[in-house]
Amino acid sequence: MQTNKEQYDLIIIGGGPIGIACGLEAEKKGLSYLVLEKGCLVNSLYHYPTNMTFFSTSEKLELDNIPFISNNPKPRKAEALEYYRRIATSNNVKINLFEKVLSVETSKENQHTVITTKERYSTLKIIVATGFYDIPNYLNIPGEELPKVAHYYNDPHYYATQKTVVVGASNSAVDAALEIYRKGGEVTMIVRKPEIGERVKYWVRPDIINRIEEGSIKAYFGARLAEIKEEEVIIETENGTDILPNDFVLLLTGYRPNFQFLKDIGIHLSNDARKIPQYNENTMETNVPGIYLAGVICGGMETHKWFIENSRVHAKMILDDIAGKK
């Protein structure tokens, strides 16, 4: 592994919208910086479903007051990819793609070394902006490892004419169920709670409720998926056990940040189920001096708390604090 001899003022871990926003602010402050992204540009967004429509309107997804013009008030995934790519390339954001951060070492003098799959970087400050989309919430049930099972959903065409079970009742699960049904798939939803989630997009929630009520999509409420087999699934309901013929299973039960990475670099997490990282709400600096958090990762397991639209401000907050300490 090579050692980069330059000492950076700032290393930004994560090349999503918030990581790019931090890079733009670092450029304004005249700081030497580098964004490290383990995948492609805005990697998590790239892996969202093909037909995804954002909950937010386009102006709320804008970075650095650069206009985001979309065909409709609520942009689609393809439009967002185009927007963030143009921002990164037009502003020459310094970013290394397909370079995964493996670990961070901090000296007694609070100097940091970022170790990646390719190099070692020395830096004074670090921003962790890695989001939460990398690790699914596993059910840990028999058969979850079968090839027919997926924790991510992409395109409905793949499931056309097939018997597909969708587990979950949030936006991702509802979108998948509706799209697959409309491509000719036979969809069954398994929902732990007694109804479709209240946070489902307001223009989509009536659609899924109506499809369930008319019988176009079958739904088991107050139920859980107990086992997945090659050609069937076993469901436990309030009325007993059901066995359904099945071709594919989509476990869209949410995702979580990489808590182990945070702990490994010394960031404290709350002792409750929320696992909120410790940071100063005014500066976003964690309990480890010189290491900051930005974006969705600040919410721990409360992944509904932070979005692009309300965490864009983290970039300026952090860079103002870093610049003020130089």
Rank of each mutant, 00 (worst) to 15 (best):
H112T: 14
G19I: 01
S56D: 04
D134M: 02
H112P: 10
I208G: 03
N110S: 11
I18P: 04
L102Y: 05
N210H: 13
V200P: 00
N72Q: 13
R182N: 15
Y255C: 12
W203M: 02
M301I: 03
I180M: 06
F261N: 12
D247Y: 11
K263M: 12
I127R: 12
T130I: 15
G39T: 05
I243W: 07
E59T: 06
D207R: 04
V101M: 06
L45S: 04
R120S: 14
G143C: 02
N154Y: 14
E198N: 06
G15V: 01
F54N: 02
I243A: 11
E232R: 14
N280A: 13
I318R: 05
W306V: 08
K38F: 06
D175L: 03
T50S: 09
H47M: 03
E232K: 14
N4A: 01
L293S: 02
W306I: 12
A223Y: 13
A160P: 00
Y292A: 10
S311K: 05
T241N: 03
E82G: 01
E25Q: 15
L252H: 02
D64T: 00
K108E: 11
Y181W: 07
A129K: 08
L319F: 04
A129G: 14
Y255I: 08
C22F: 02
M284L: 13
D264E: 15
E25G: 00
P73H: 08
E195C: 14
Y159V: 04
E281W: 08
P206N: 08
Y279K: 04
G15I: 01
N271K: 12
T253N: 12
K218F: 07
N110P: 04
I217C: 15
E82H: 13
L81P: 06
K125M: 12
A160L: 07
N92R: 15
N154R: 12
K38A: 11
E238A: 10
Y159S: 01
I95W: 02
Y153F: 15
L102K: 15
F68L: 07
F132I: 10
L34G: 12
E230P: 07
W306P: 01
I190R: 08
M1K: 11
R199G: 09
L31E: 04
L252V: 09
I127K: 11
F261D: 11
Y153K: 11
L81N: 05
M317C: 13
I66Y: 01
P277S: 08
V104A: 13
D207T: 09
V35I: 15
V149L: 14
Y292K: 11
A294Q: 02
F307P: 00
V174L: 01
G240P: 02
Y33H: 14
Y181G: 00
G185A: 14
G222S: 02
T286W: 08
D272K: 05
E119I: 00
P156I: 13
R120I: 04
Y292E: 12
A160D: 08
K201W: 00
A21D: 13
N310R: 07
D175W: 03
N239F: 08
E186Q: 09
E6S: 07
R312V: 15
T303H: 03
P147H: 07
H112E: 03
N271D: 15
A21R: 05
G23Q: 04
G324E: 08
